[in-house]
Design a protein around this nucleic acid. Structure first.
Lengths: 200, 200
DNA sequence: CCTTTTCTTGACACCGTGTCAATTGACAGG
DNA sequence: CCTGTCAATTGACACGGTGTCAAGAAAAGG
């Protein structure tokens, strides 16, 4: 792949990003993206054989751009399990708005397109791993709530952190991002941490 | 509308139901439904001008069949706010699997179709009202958690009870229905009820 | 200058929704 | 028995979006 080829590829991905982040991600057509990138629709297919490939590439690009791995990993350096849980929620919670457009496009596609479904599932499984690790940290500290097995606790955390929940709270309920993060943190602690029920 | 007309309408709606409940609701086409109902695709459009109308009618049919209003209303007769919360969650939580196919079809459509979006939003607003009422009952008892305003508490409950969360926990996490209901009840109580943090 | 790669134009197949027109069959009332 | 009405049928078609294909232009690089 020559330099030119790479340049165009990048331009396409950036165009996709730009189109997707400005609301109504599902309404963004392959032709719209091509126009934004300054190439023909067919040239787009030369670089990305299918829409799912383009979404996938763009999502990866965003991951790199925002260094999400680094951010999530940073939460691992927290001293206690509880602090780690907080840091994890904050890192992911603040990442969601940045990828929301892309996420929405994926979510709309995944029911009808095998490739989109796989790509999205992989991303969500990565998050799930992070959840499991955070729960393990709680468990090591002995601060995991006795109400839940580690597996169940991880499932709950993972579900709390879903893009759909973020969407519902931020859009349908009108919450601010700050509120979303703080309430989610508090709720997770309350549900998953064995906070001395007696006394405080 | 003659009897015959009504009969066909009902047959269509039942065919829709049957097709939708057997997984992959999004893959169900107008033609499939017509075939199942034993009429031509065009006759279907004679009764329901658009797919969204058909989904809406079918959802209403299910509501009546399962008497969801009655079930949700029954939770209002609980003695305490906490009992009411439990009853509400159970009533709704056990209704979700019955309408899941329909819900999925709506959710897939609502991003691209105005009518579908409105129909679905109405249904969800009805649920939201129920959530608000349950929270008010807690508040009257003085058992609402001091962590949340009534509005915020209702938002949290509403989000917890979303079809998407049910889907994720039951399908992606492999929870049983029983587990889903019991964990959701317990979580709601823990998040929203001012359970004597000191002592028990 | 010639070759390879990239991109362009334009046409087309496929699929699902929704529309239209012409026709058939059944049933009811005068 | 004829006529009008209503439900349904058949078959064709427009539209919008994805993905494919072929022929040729343009640009980069040796």
């Amino acid at each position: 792949m020559s330099r030119k080829n790479l340049e165009t590829r990048t331009r396409i991905v950036q165009a996709t990003w730009k189109m997707m982040e400005g609301g109504d991600a599902n309404a963004v057509r392959m032709g719209d993206i091509a126009k934004e990138a300054g190439i023909s629709r067919q040239a787009l297919y030369l670089h990305f054989p299918a829409r799912a490939d383009l979404l996938d590439a763009t999502a990866r690009y965003l991951d790199e751009y925002y260094e999400i791995d680094k951010r999530l990993a940073a939460s691992r350096s927290a001293k206690t399990g509880v602090e780690r849980l907080d840091a994890f929620i904050e890192a992911w919670g603040d990442y969601i708005p940045k990828i929301y457009g892309m996420a929405k496009a994926f979510l709309a596609m995944k029911d009808s397109d095998e490739a989109a479904m796989i790509a999205w599932t992989n991303r969500m499984e990565a998050l799930r791993h992070g959840c499991r690790a955070a729960i393990r940290a709680l468990n090591r500290d002995g601060t995991l709530s006795p109400d839940h097995s580690p597996g169940q606790a991880a499932d709950i955390l993972w579900t709390m952190l879903s893009v759909r929940n973020w969407e519902q709270l931020r859009h349908d309920c009108g919450w601010s991002q700050k509120r979303y993060v703080s309430v989610t943190k508090r709720s997770a602690r309350r549900l998953l941490v064995n906070e001395n029920r007696v006394g405080r």
